[in-house]
Amino acid sequence: MTPEERSVLAGEFALGVLDGPERAQALRLLVADPGFAREVERWREHFAVWFAEFGEVEPDPGLEERILGALPGGAANDDAGRAVRLWRAVAGGASLAAAGLLAALLLQPERAAPPAPPRPAPAAPAPLVAALDPTPDAGGTLDAPLAAVFDRATGTLTLASAVDVPAGRAAELWTIAGDGVPRSLGVLGTGNRLTVRPEARGRLAAGVVLAVSVEPPGGSPTGSPTGPVVATGALSAV
């Protein structure tokens, strides 16, 4: 892809005209390429001047009360029960929506190069990717599937964008394998990155489910998720 093509793709993505495999390609670049992400950001800033031209319209007066009533408030007990139910559902398999996005991410050929030339450096293992589907029952913390990439060479897990957690809370990442028991990978750090400790890296493999839960700062005090599970998706080899 030439710099011009890349810039145009960033503009198309910021404008919102892409869908299907082209949108998936842009999403994948957004994760893999900080330069592309900056370019999308620049386009968004340019287009933002148009926001002034959207007219103002008053919504229904009753909406204010509806929204204030929908804010998460003190229902801690309920959250715990919901987390258990969600974990059962997650252990049963990743969602179809996530699988669909993943397929789009993986099946779209990025370049037209013939597959014939031998791959350089076969020693570097291919990354693992997952499309993390938001779990609506958790309170809609995410509003769109979130791409995750695990670089096996460096042990770094990167999410395409921030996970929204309430102030004073942290996003913790988990693996769930065949036994259905969530095991912590650690708390998501700055840059939406997490360096997985070397002894835990072996748990990241194709087919294993990756999940994100909202926890106290520093992570779950119990070793198991205590807060709502906000997104899940199965890992695949690229």
Partner: peptide, 18 residues
């Protein structure tokens, strides 16, 4: 649009800290 607006403000509530 009102359903979406409700979602929007709930997202704002969660993201405002960032």
């Amino acid at each position: 649009a009102e359903d979406v607006l409700q979602d929007v403000y709930l997202i704002i509530w969660r993201r405002a800290g960032g």
